[in-house]
Design a protein around this nucleic acid. Structure first.
Lengths: 353, 353
DNA sequence: AGTTAGCACTTGAGTGTTGAGAGTGCTAAA
DNA sequence: TTTAGCACTCTCAACACTCAAGTGCTAACT
């Protein structure tokens, strides 16, 4: 079901007991945030093994790279590799509660016009539900050309420019004019637009062709610059991009982020939308579908204490996106993954714009 | 120039020296964040008075309520009242640098279509420029009725509904239909809309009148519910509200907010947009124009360590709004006020939507 | 061979204690 | 009215000390 890089081939041959111990350690550490000791484990696990045996096993698990010791007299803490093993092979699958399903369905089925609003609301709800910071990114391919122009007369000095794009999309904009408009004048302008500017790629519009256009428009040339600017806005760039971020304050809830200066740089990193887009869309990180980054891959900045679980998706109407959560390394992987998968699976069929 | 509640009538008769001392204390405390001692003052102030004299003056200033002592052997810190006195009467006026003016002008004069985008960009720039958290709120009166409907045929199964509202605004929406559309069919539908739904107040639409409408629409009744929903969206509610928030991570830069749990609740308070709107639009707090809240008025929540400087504005086209900054009580009042006033004064003439 | 009890060892966290430093208030002299 | 001087208060950093938690290792047990 989940795919991860299997760079720990030899790790798979952990015996049953080691697995159980590792799972217990990660489970309790996720809950408590404090290093887990052998004594506690021998008491809490269903299995009755003495603390001494557990110590031996733990020491081996540490040598294998699954555990770390903050300092000599502390308990053990999972390493990134330990978390990875846990996520891949050990953790229980979380089942969403009925209430959670209802909340998520409510958002996804709500009669909201735009899909991007649904995504925005989902980041809010997910961050709320998980107590982590949620982010989302959507990219909708822009039209490359305009297929047809229409105009609606609004007043003698303004009309609504309607641009029907190659993506079956419609963009409109109010245009004010210096000349006095009548239905006839407007239809001439629209006709001129349709004759000269449909199907044109933005790169094809040269200074020369603009002069040419101005000639053709004659007395109506006054509206041309405004219209051209709107065409460029509609057609320029490959994607309409959007970033959503919610629940930043959640990060501060975890003692893992008690170091305020590091946390400050983490938050300012997230807050910078340009930068967030760059990080999310970095092609060298992650593949389609569900990704789990555990501390790694982002160690250069303040992100080495964080994990990031995100799900790339693409929807019928051409929109692609990412929905994810950021939290401490000891985050509730199981719960987050279950909720993310539920949401994305139910989002894929969506036909909204 | 600035107006404040003058509940400190007697405070005005501070002698020149006391004023100078108070000003120096606030100035240095804003810079350093550490309690200011008499010795430092006697050395740093242009005036040469002995530390003992300053001590006497400080002790009186404390009795008058302008200063506070964190503990017996620490220096003095301005009280809220001290800050207020400082803002009202003592501080130097900050002049914006040419560079700052350029940056702000760039944003305000940029060829951005919507005014709300300008406001959004301004919060980003202001938080960046001041290193505090910036917020903004805009409210644009919605149309109360629709004056005219128009339609543009997009495909045999869809058309663009154009609604021209009582506010000289235009809203459009793509409507998909079950029936096959022709230019004639569409014009019939639009005609029906114009005959029955222009000028109607939303409250006037009863279940009964909807039945009536369905009768009138006959075979075209299928599109009616979708259209009605769009009308309601366009006309419902008094305002289109928007909240902007930027530079939250800046808060963490100040040692004043080292207490992570209090800061957490502060940030989550700001992050909750509903709540932020409520706070900003609370009619019992603040008046038109520039407001300076110093710790007070928001003591119930984690806001007692913060100050908030904001400027209400209303623009020619009916939009009203608020632009403000939140920071520690020892914030750079002079700089923030100067920048806010500059921005708002230049925004008022704006005619964009 | 694997497991476990026991014990020595390590370490961090918490607690007093102490001294230095900063700042004050007060007093007496200028 | 101002100021120098001094006693006093309080915080903070450093240090020593104890305590508890947890480990690793060894020897005995099954």
């Amino acid at each position: 079901m989940l795919k991860f890089k299997k760079k720990d081939g030899e790790a798979m041959d952990l015996n049953e007991r080691k697995k159980r111990i590792l799972k217990s350690i990660v489970d309790t550490y996720i809950l408590s945030g404090e290093p887990v000791g052998s004594k506690y484990l021998s008491g809490s696990m269903g299995l009755d093994i003495s603390s001494a045996t557990i110590r031996n096993e733990m020491s081996e698990l540490e040598q294998l790279g699954f555990l770390e010791q903050p300092h000599a007299s502390a308990g053990r803490v999972p390493s990134s590799m330990g978390y990875r093993m846990y996520v891949e092979n050990l953790m229980n699958q979380y089942s969403l509660s009925l209430e959670e399903i209802n909340v998520l369905n409510d958002v996804m089925n709500s009669r909201i016009r735009h899909l991007s609003d649904v995504v925005s609301e989902l980041t809010r709800v997910l961050s709320d539900m998980t107590d982590y910071t949620a982010f989302a990114y959507t990219a909708k391919p822009k039209a490359s050309t305009i297929v047809r122009f229409e105009g609606v007369l609004l007043s003698p000095k303004s009309f609504l420019l309607v641009m029907i794009t190659s993506q079956e999309n419609v963009k409109t904009h109010q245009i004010r004019t210096d000349i006095t408009l009548t239905a006839e004048v407007l239809s001439v302008i629209i006709k001129l637009l349709n004759e000269n500017l449909t199907g044109v790629n933005i790169e094809q519009i040269s200074l020369e062709s603009i002069y040419d256009l101005e000639d053709k428009f004659g007395v109506y040339r006054g509206v041309l610059s405004d219209i051209l600017r709107n065409i460029v806005d509609t057609v320029k760039g490959e994607y309409d991009k959007q970033v959503y971020l919610d629940g930043m304050s959640n990060i501060l809830k975890y003692p893992d982020f008690a170091d305020i200066s590091k946390t400050q740089s983490l938050i300012s990193l997230l807050e910078d939308k340009e930068n967030l887009i760059r990080m999310i869309t970095d092609p060298s990180v992650g593949h389609d579908g569900l990704n789990v980054l555990i501390g790694d891959g982002m160690s250069d900045q303040g992100l080495d204490k964080t994990s990031c679980i995100y799900h790339k998706f693409s929807i019928g109407n051409g929109m692609t996106g990412v929905l994810g959560l950021i939290g401490p390394k000891r985050m509730d992987y199981s719960g987050v993954i279950a909720r993310l998968e539920y949401v994305v699976n139910n989002l894929i069929g969506d036909e909204r714009n």
